[in-house]
Amino acid sequence: MYGMINDAIRQMVTERHGEDAWEEMRRRADADLVFLRMAQYPDALTYRLVAIATEMLGTEVDAVLRAFGDYWIDYADEAYGELLAVSGDSFVEMVENLNDLHTRVGQLMPDLKPPSFHLTEQSAGSFRLHYHSTRDGLGPMVVGLLEGLGRRYRTAVEVEHVVRRDAADDHDEFLVRYRPA
């Protein structure tokens, strides 16, 4: 996992729960003081951070991932605002662009193992999003991600996690209903 993910977790925890909470998490996860966004870190560290946050907040892993997906848009807007600014003018355009974006970024960052996104059943107010990833259990993060994008593009979004990746299904599917503001 690229350092930007861990750094976003750090920033989110610090903003919402304070420096001390982050310091406790960091120590417990045995993480570095500073994450370099473009450097590679073990996936296990990120999962550890998520598990510790879950425990400290006394909530469910899914809730933490969903909140993080939502926060990721803010983080990306701040860190990669210029990229987002030219990646689409609307919620749907942006979602349509997700796959292209991740694929190209994957070329630039050799070890990224980027996820893939593609849309089916597109209509005026809804689409079905298919999410493939080599990593386990991050579906709830995509729900937050879509909600965060809706917020960024002032679009009311309702996401239903209709298919969960498991032994029977090799990917997650989301039914997304939206209505531009």
């Binding site: 473009m38 860190a79 990669y80 210029e82 990229l83 190209r104 970024v105 630039l108």
Partner: peptide, 13 residues
Amino acid sequence: RDLLLLLQAQSTT
């Protein structure tokens, strides 16, 4: 398109 992403990565770094 790739150049633009590379430029973004460089600017972020």
